[in-house]
């Protein structure tokens, strides 16, 4: 499994996203321009220029026509995937971090950071089919969370929104009323900042990664803790294989704690765990800094990782991978 190195960013990667067909890979980084790549051979197709700050996350619509990005320049932008044209800008008074389209792509949830005097929020915007109808108005604003929200995603049938972040708590919110329905258990749940959250292909369960050096698998409807995967380093990125019962977990020591020259020192490995047995299967090394982003191709036959080192590494699995016995 020789990885394809994709060098298109000058700053650390922040987020990776495949489109539904699995032929395009979108990458966000702390430089201001998200890129789109061919997911098969790693050729760069284009760049979305227009942001004026680090881009924290993105999402692509089901038909791969539109891209939404959230940035530290206090905006979220809609783009035309094919032409790279900027379609619309949502302005906020704090950096926008997590973005996601809802089922049907008619809605998007965008989170804003606690910045200056602003409390962190998760806001629901209507995404109009016709650009002329597009407005900046929020349908719903979720507040009441202390500490940054690192990820907010839609639950089944757009009825709920799930948030996770600095306060180490996962919450499920009602999208009709904006009320908090469920909170993760303090004992069972994460002990430190949740850095990442990734849903299974059918949106039935999701995986969270935390600086407490663990990743946890939860039922999306009941918020029941199903599995815990323990690693040796802070977790920055997680994803669930859509094909096999595997999960991938990446991270590494904070750059400030890494004084060693040896790249093994920080454990910048993407670790694979068996989803059900919670046992480690193997690891993929290569990055020279912590892994900040991970994504499985929707076909489950390749995955990519984005690191603090500014590289995206695209890995196609060998046939051995599909025959792993544990």
């Amino acid at each position: 499994m020789r990885p394809i190195l994709m060098k298109g960013h000058e700053r650390p990667l922040t987020f990776l996203r495949y489109n539904r067909d699995g032929d395009l890979l979108f990458s966000c980084a702390k430089d201001h321009s998200p890129n789109v790549w061919f997911a098969d051979n790693g050729d760069r197709l284009g760049t979305y220029r227009g942001h004026n700050g680090a881009v924290w996350s993105c999402d692509v619509s089901r038909d791969s026509t539109r891209l939404i990005t959230g940035s530290a320049d206090q905006t979220a932008k809609l783009w035309d995937v094919q032409t790279g044209r900027e379609l619309f800008t949502f302005r906020f008074d704090a950096p926008a971090r997590s973005v996601e389209f809802a089922i049907g792509d008619g809605l998007a949830v965008i989170t804003t950071d606690n910045f200056m005097d602003n409390v962190p929020t998760a806001q629901v915007k209507r995404i109009a089919e016709d650009l002329d109808d597009q407005s900046e108005e929020s349908l719903l604003v979720i507040t009441g969370i202390k500490g940054r929200i690192n990820r907010a995603v839609w639950g089944p049938l757009n009825r709920t929104i799930i948030t996770a972040g600095e306060d180490a708590t996962i919450r499920i919110w009602d999208t009709e009323t904006g009320k908090c329905l469920k909170e993760s258990d303090k004992e069972q749940g994460h002990q430190k900042t949740i850095t990442s959250l990734s849903k299974s292909a059918d949106w039935s369960h999701f995986l969270t990664g935390s600086l407490d050096k663990s990743a946890k698998l939860w039922d999306i409807r009941t918020l029941t803790l199903i599995k815990t995967y323990v690693t040796e380093r802070p977790v920055n990125a997680v994803d669930i294989s859509p094909l096999l019962d595997h999960v991938v977990i990446g991270g590494g020591q904070d750059a400030m704690n890494v004084t060693m020259t040896d790249r093994r020192a920080g454990k910048f490995e993407a670790k694979f765990f068996h989803k059900i047995l919670q046992e480690e299967i193997g690891g993929v090394k290569g990055h020279f800094g912590p892994i900040n982003a991970l994504a499985f191709n929707p076909d489950g036959r390749s995955f990519s990782s984005g690191g603090e080192d500014g590289y995206v590494r695209l890995h196609h699995f060998d046939s051995d991978y599909f025959n792993i016995k544990i």
């Binding site: 809802a102 089922i103 008619g106 089944p156 049938l157 039935s204 409807r221």
Partner: peptide, 12 residues
């Protein structure tokens, strides 16, 4: 649950 929700999802 996924099956049960199918019609709603289609609607969305």
């Amino acid at each position: 649950l996924h099956e049960e929700e199918r019609p709603y999802r289609m609607e969305l």
